[in-house]
């Protein structure tokens, strides 16, 4: 394990509890475990978190923005980015999708190998035509998906994310609590990265380029 990586692992501030000799032992143990899990040591660092093998491969049954029933197989052969949000989202969704759109711009023609799956977890408002209009604003690689509560919950559970609805206000509008995660899958549907929009378009583009080339 490289020192840089180890330093990143060491939580800031925990070192201040350094009077405990135990800390370094557990720290080492944790580092070793994380190391095993992420198969570190091979290849350069990703800008985003490598979660290969930590979660099951992509699988879902939903409806797409054309209204057709789709499964993960329909997106085979493409690298995929999956984000859970809702079309009436005021902040996180448009910001995250905007960063992804910029990253795809930087990829140029290589962006053709990527699909961005926007999973609307608010089916009441995330109807196919609304999804289509919403995702078109970000570019041709963006696909809107949604489904029944059961289908959405199964997918959310598979990737250990949550979503829930807030109370309606006087106008009937309501917020939806959802995750900020962007999961990246390779062309075979294996989970590879957990992308944080805060890393920025350049860092994400670099990771995507590598993901596409490595396959």
């Amino acid at each position: 394990m490289k020192t840089a990586e180890f330093a990143r692992f060491r939580p800031q501030g925990f070192t201040r509890l350094g009077a405990l000799g135990r800390k370094s032992v557990t720290g080492l143990g944790a580092a070793a475990l994380v190391c095993l899990l992420t198969a570190c040591g091979g290849g350069a660092e990703w800008n985003n978190r490598d979660i290969s093998g930590l979660m099951p491969p992509l699988e879902f049954e939903l409806y797409s923005e054309t209204g057709a029933q789709v499964t993960a197989d329909d997106f085979d052969g493409q690298a995929q980015l999956m984000f859970f949000g809702f079309t009436h989202c005021p902040d996180i969704c448009p910001i995250t999708l905007g960063v992804l759109a910029k990253a795809l711009d930087q990829l140029g023609p290589e962006a053709e190998a990527v699909d961005v799956l926007f999973v609307g977890v608010d089916p009441e408002r995330d109807q196919p035509e609304v999804l289509a209009e919403y995702t078109d604003a970000f570019g041709p690689r963006f696909v809107g998906l949604s489904g029944t509560q059961e289908q959405l919950k199964a997918l959310a559970k598979r990737y250990r994310v949550s979503f829930s609805y807030e109370d309606r206000d006087a106008t009937g509008a309501y917020g939806v609590n959802h995750s900020s995660a962007v999961y990246a899958f390779d062309e075979t549907g294996k989970v590879r990265l957990l992308i944080d929009a805060d890393t920025g378009p350049e860092a994400i583009a670099a990771d995507l380029r590598r993901l596409i080339r490595e396959g």
Binding site: F9, R22, G27, T38, I51, M55
Partner: peptide
């Protein structure tokens, strides 16, 4: 030690993503 181990932020992150862990 177990309390400190599972509260290490990095390991905690993976434990919450990976079911066996």
């Amino acid at each position: 030690g177990l309390i400190y181990l599972w509260l290490s932020p990095e390991l905690h992150f993976y434990a919450m993503l990976n079911i066996p862990l």
